[in-house]
Design a protein around this nucleic acid. Structure first.
Length: 484
RNA sequence: GCCCCCAUCGUCCAGCGGCCUAGGACGCCGCCCUUUCAAGGCGGUAACGGGGAUUCGAAUUCCCCUGGGGGCACCA
């Protein structure tokens, strides 16, 4: 035990965003690298936005990613008494005070501050009320919240493990609410209290929380004299266009990637590459390898853009690394969701065998099997592919020859090889075969043709070729009579 | 508006005063391989945002500008 204790503390307000997942990952990597503890804490102090369904989903999706949790989850919603007691103590000792301003008044203060070119914030109206004034305001039935008193001058600073010293003038930070008028605590308070209670030694989180650190630290100092944790603020993950990564950029939640057929190993691997780099330049790495190589001094400072293309490459690398049995286990749920539970497992495994090395995701791998597992009446031919077929030189003759051959050849993989069939026609396999792919598989690019035909069976294969021949029309040759 | 953080190829990551005519990876382009598409092999394209300063010497240090991001809530 190194004494390192880190926590991942998401707010349960939706599915886990990749940015949050990356934060969780870096915390986990740090804990594992240093032999420390990785705890999960749910920051659900906002009862309006937090939902229990999200709370319940978080451990599961972290487990899917491969991050095992040592402690927790600690639910802040179950610790309101602690926060309330801490707040009361702060009021007693003069670090915080009761505020009776109404939402309308506060909004007006913000507006006027903005107009005056100052940082919008609290103006200190209730800072130094006498006991009588407080009683009077309370008697009016005004809302009562608790605010933390920030210093009027001087500056706040702390040493960030990634960025070095970060300082800011206190004059830019106004008194902030730590307990809502409904009695519920605010993030800053719960955060400070719990990091103390949980003996957190390193706070690794997104850069979006950098500015709030001054407030949390001020609170912590008012609550305890114990050593402060080391803070490390991770660069943010941006969308490909460097804007905020949101749903309009496609998949953003871990669940989205899982549903899209990405492997957890690949997601973990790719996420580790955003904001960190291996000293030896390795890119495709196992979780164990990353754990061994990871440390905070290797974390970059600049925000990184999410690159779906590179993720696809990493996922492809991982797809090829899996054993066939493993691919089967992982792809089966996707196949059953698409084709029903009754698919032929033998055919499925053969299709996986020929498809594994060319698939980007589990979903794309399964989709290549539509021609095998979709009911015949649902089989469709891709329009672009059909145009290519129609434009293929001597397409009719090729299809005729193929049909003739498949009609009475031996049904082995060797015998359904169509290259010898094409030879007498004098057409190149490269030129002519895509048309046959289209006829049989519904698209000009797909699983290897001869294996596919072999798996599909004689009747279905012939039916596909015949259908294509018919649709192609034009001057018929001698089909269906045997040729040459 | 104010405050904070950041700044090397399109993207991710190397580089931490001379080894840089700036390296690797993804992408992209070309060639090879090839039953399609991939995969694989080989080659190529492409960057230190601008201006000062320090220094014999700056991608590397400092300052300014510009640009990008974040924050300024009874959200976290």
């Amino acid at each position: 035990m190194s004494g390192v204790r880190v926590r991942f503390s998401p707010a349960p307000t939706g599915e886990l965003h990749v940015g949050s997942a990356r934060t969780a990952l870096f915390n986990w990597l740090y804990a594992r690298h240093h032999g420390g503890v990785f705890a999960l804490r749910i920051e659900d102090t906002d009862r309006e936005r937090s939902r229990t369904e999200w709370v319940e989903q978080i451990p599961g999706i972290l487990q899917w990613l491969g991050l095992d949790i040592d402690e927790g989850p600690v639910l802040q919603s179950e610790r309101f008494d602690e926060y309330r007691a801490a707040a009361d103590g702060l009021v007693e000792r003069g670090f915080a005070y009761e505020c009776f301003c109404t939402p309308g008044e506060l909004e007006a203060k913000h507006e006027s501050a903005k107009k005056a070119g100052r940082t919008p914030g609290y103006d200190g109206t209730c800072r130094d009320l006498t006991e009588e004034e407080r009683a009077a305001k309370a008697a009016e039935g005004r809302p009562r919240s608790i605010r933390f008193r920030t210093p009027d001058d001087g500056s706040s600073s702390f040493v960030d493990a990634i960025r070095g010293e970060v300082a800011v003038e206190w004059s830019t930070i106004s008194d902030f609410v730590i307990v809502r008028s409904d009695g519920n605590p605010i993030f800053f308070l719960a955060n400070a209290v719990d990091d103390l209670a949980m003996d957190i030694t390193h706070v690794i989180r997104g850069e979006d929380l950098l500015d709030s650190t001054h407030r949390v630290l001020a609170l912590r100092r008012a609550l305890s004299e114990r050593d402060e944790p080391i803070y490390a603020h991770l660069p943010l993950i941006l969308a490909p266009d460097r804007s905020k990564l949101s749903k309009r950029h496609g998949a953003v939640a871990l669940e989205d990637f899982r549903d899209a057929g990405y492997l957890p190993e690949a997601i973990l691997n790719y996420l580790s590459l955003l904001g960190w780099g291996d000293d030896e330049g390795r890119e495709v790495m196992t979780a164990d390898e990353i754990v061994a190589a990871f440390d905070l001094d290797g974390v970059t400072h600049a925000a990184a853009a999410f690159d779906h293309k590179k993720l696809d490459w990493v996922n492809g690398e991982w797809m090829r690394r899996l054993t066939l049995d493993d691919v089967e286990v992982r792809a089966l749920p996707y196949a059953q969701a698409r084709y029903g539970a009754g698919i032929d497992r033998g055919v499925f495994k053969e299709a996986l065998r020929i498809g594994q090395e060319r698939a980007v995701t589990l979903v794309s791998l399964v989709e290549q099997m539509d021609f095998l597992f979709l009911a015949d009446e649902k089989f469709t031919v891709d329009e672009d592919s059909w145009e290519k077929l129609a434009a293929t030189e001597r397409a009719g003759e090729v299809l005729d020859a193929v049909a003739t051959h498949l009609a009475d050849c031996e049904w082995t993989l060797e015998a359904v090889d169509l290259r010898p069939v094409l030879e007498p026609l004098g057409v190149k396999p490269r030129k002519a075969l895509p048309a046959v792919y289209t006829a049989v598989e519904g698209r000009h690019a797909g699983l290897p043709l001869f294996d596919s035909i072999h798996l599909l069976g004689r009747d279905r294969s012939l039916a596909r070729v015949h259908a294509a021949r018919q649709r192609l029309g034009g001057e018929d040759t001698r089909w269906p009579c045997p040729s040459g």
